[in-house]
Amino acid sequence: MQSTAFSRSLAGLCAATLLCTASFADDCSFDQVSIKGDFGEMNFRVEIADDPQERATGLMNRESMPTLSGMLFVYETPQSLAFWMRNTLIPLDMIFVDERGKIAKIHPNAIPLDESPIHGGDDLTHVLEIGGGLAAKFGIKKGDILRHSSFIQNEAHWPCG
Rank of each mutant, 00 (worst) to 15 (best):
L146N: 01
F96R: 01
L124D: 00
A49M: 06
I140G: 00
C20K: 07
A49E: 03
P117F: 08
Q32N: 11
R100V: 10
A104T: 05
L89S: 12
P52T: 10
A5L: 15
E63W: 06
P52W: 07
L81G: 05
G70P: 02
S23Q: 10
D38V: 03
I35R: 01
I35W: 00
I35N: 01
R100K: 11
S23H: 08
I48F: 06
I152F: 12
N61W: 15
C14Q: 10
T67I: 09
T57F: 15
S9K: 08
S80A: 12
G37R: 02
A25M: 06
N43G: 08
N61T: 08
Y75W: 13
P117I: 07
E99P: 04
D38A: 15
D38E: 12
E63H: 14
L19R: 04
T67S: 10
E47K: 03
L113E: 15
S29W: 09
Y75C: 05
I90H: 11
P112A: 07
C160E: 04
E115P: 07
R62D: 06
E41T: 05
L146V: 04
L113A: 13
R45T: 15
K102P: 00
F83L: 12
G101Q: 01
L124G: 00
R8E: 10
E47H: 09
P108H: 13
I140K: 00
E76P: 07
T125G: 11
S149Y: 09
K102V: 11
A135R: 02
I90L: 09
E115M: 14
I130A: 02
F30P: 10
T57I: 15
H157N: 06
V127F: 06
T88C: 10
C28K: 02
V74Y: 02
F96G: 04
Q32R: 15
R8H: 09
G139L: 05
E54T: 08
H126S: 04
C160F: 07
I152T: 14
Q53S: 13
E76L: 08
S150M: 12
F151C: 07
A25C: 14
T17G: 14
E115K: 10
R55L: 12
G161N: 14
D93H: 05
F83S: 00
M94R: 00
A135I: 03
H119M: 14
I118M: 08
K105D: 10
T17Y: 14
I90W: 11
T4N: 12
L10W: 07
C14D: 13
A49N: 02
I118P: 06
I145Y: 02
P66A: 13
C20T: 11
D26Q: 14
G58M: 03
A82T: 04
S23V: 11
E54Y: 03
G120V: 03
W158C: 00
L68A: 09
Q32D: 11
F138C: 09
I118T: 08
D114Q: 13
E76M: 07
I118L: 15
G131F: 03
A25V: 06
T57A: 15
P91T: 04
D38Q: 11
R62M: 13
E115T: 15
M65V: 07
V46F: 09
K105G: 03
L146Q: 01
I35A: 01
A82P: 01
I95Q: 00
K141M: 01
D31T: 11
M71Q: 00
G58S: 06
F73G: 04
T88Q: 02
F39N: 01
I90D: 04
G120R: 02
F83P: 00
P91R: 05
T77C: 08
R86I: 07
